[in-house]
Computed example of a mutant assay.
Amino acid sequence: MKLYKKTYLPLIVLLFFGIQAWSQDNRSFKVFQFPANKIPTIDGNAEDWKIVPDSYVVGMNELWEDSGKQTKADSKNLDVRVKVAWVKGLNRLYFLYEAYDDYWDFSLPGLHNDTFELIVDADQSGGPLIERFHPNKSLVNTMDGYFSFQGVHAQNYHIFTPAEGKDWTLVWGSQPWIKELPYANAATNYNFKPGESGKMTLEFWITPFDYAGNTPDRAVESLLEENKNIGLCWAIIDYDDVNNEKNNGFWNLSKEHTMYGNASYSLPFKLMPLEAEFKKAIDAKWIFNTVDINRRMVAFIDKSVGEIQSWNWDFGDGITSSEQNPIHQYKEAGKYIVVLNVAGPKGTSRMSKIWDVAIK
């Protein structure tokens, strides 16, 4: 008994607290915002991504090999860099995946393929996302669970790197339509053969969904908004021998191996505002809502950017306002040219919209 207490008890305590500490992950990452006039072309060329600062790169230093097959990252064996981006106004996530591998394994037609496995949970709803982890035990590993549960609230893209003679990704679930246009697009660039070493560039975008069933008719896209956190996670599965069914490494961004099937283990990625170099010092912007169509009342909402001290609205019917967010009642039906002029310490700006505001 004494031997048990002295030898095993500290080990048990250490193991317990080690698991507790390991499960707590306070890391967060950033998603770069591309300006609307610099949206990357999906062609496998990383040139468009040079404007993304290195502070957005997620590299091997953020990954851990959780299968015990590798003790530490070795750039001569595998070296990976990932950048994530978005464009304001589009519910798309853009990815640049650049990887060097000393042995690219992609000659077989099935799952045995070097892989970039991506988990997307844009509304951070968390929870299991594949039928193997279904909370209703009677639906675990059943086709009912597959069609009604897997990939519905969060998505898993099992991306083949590279995909030669096969589709670019397997979608874990009954919604393979999400990997096709108009919901996704991908391109790769590489010049090596199976078994050789070299660098591969994978460029793609996807559409995240709050709900994605086996048909797109009832799907609900996730809304991407500035400064919002979304849930993302990925793993790199590295095969080094076509004759060995087992992989040579499972490099995980999460500290929980089963992140591939549970969105609760994803990490927060913040949808960042534009970097300062892409912002105008002052830029007039506005939107409108018809709040009472019978009384011809329209609410105008200022969305201008920069330090603004004054607003001047011309509603197109001879009436003006200096309020930031005015509500205006039109007396007559018609199509109107509405103009907003803003001014501040760094200049002036105007935004005119021709006939957007049309009143019956």
Results as ranks from 00 to 15, higher is better:
240 D>L: 06
224 L>Y: 10
224 L>D: 13
237 I>H: 00
210 D>S: 15
206 I>Y: 00
194 P>L: 06
203 E>I: 00
195 G>P: 05
244 N>R: 02
251 W>I: 03
214 N>E: 09
217 D>N: 06
193 K>I: 01
215 T>W: 04
199 K>P: 06
226 E>W: 11
227 N>W: 09
227 N>K: 14
241 D>A: 12
239 Y>H: 07
202 L>V: 08
233 C>I: 02
229 N>E: 13
221 E>H: 15
207 T>P: 06
206 I>N: 13
240 D>E: 11
251 W>C: 03
203 E>T: 07
249 G>S: 10
222 S>M: 08
250 F>N: 05
230 I>T: 01
241 D>F: 07
249 G>I: 04
217 D>Q: 05
198 G>A: 09
207 T>M: 09
209 F>R: 09
231 G>T: 04
233 C>Y: 01
231 G>Y: 12
207 T>N: 14
230 I>Q: 03
231 G>E: 08
194 P>M: 09
236 I>T: 02
232 L>V: 01
212 A>M: 02
233 C>S: 13
190 Y>S: 00
225 E>N: 07
250 F>A: 10
235 A>Y: 04
191 N>Q: 13
216 P>S: 13
230 I>K: 01
199 K>S: 01
254 S>F: 14
220 V>N: 04
215 T>M: 14
222 S>H: 15
253 L>N: 09
228 K>F: 06
206 I>V: 15
237 I>P: 00
221 E>M: 09
221 E>R: 14
222 S>A: 15
253 L>R: 10
220 V>Y: 11
204 F>S: 03
215 T>N: 11
203 E>Q: 08
203 E>G: 02
244 N>V: 02
249 G>C: 03
236 I>S: 09
228 K>G: 00
207 T>H: 14
203 E>F: 01
219 A>I: 12
204 F>V: 05
202 L>M: 12
205 W>L: 06
241 D>M: 05
248 N>C: 08
225 E>M: 11
212 A>N: 14
253 L>D: 06
213 G>M: 02
224 L>E: 03
249 G>F: 01
233 C>Q: 10
205 W>D: 06
238 D>N: 13
230 I>V: 07
224 L>H: 10
191 N>M: 02
211 Y>N: 13
229 N>F: 09
206 I>F: 05
218 R>K: 15
238 D>T: 04
199 K>H: 07
241 D>H: 14
238 D>P: 02
205 W>F: 09
192 F>D: 05
211 Y>F: 14
233 C>L: 07
192 F>T: 11
230 I>S: 01
191 N>H: 11
215 T>C: 13
210 D>W: 11
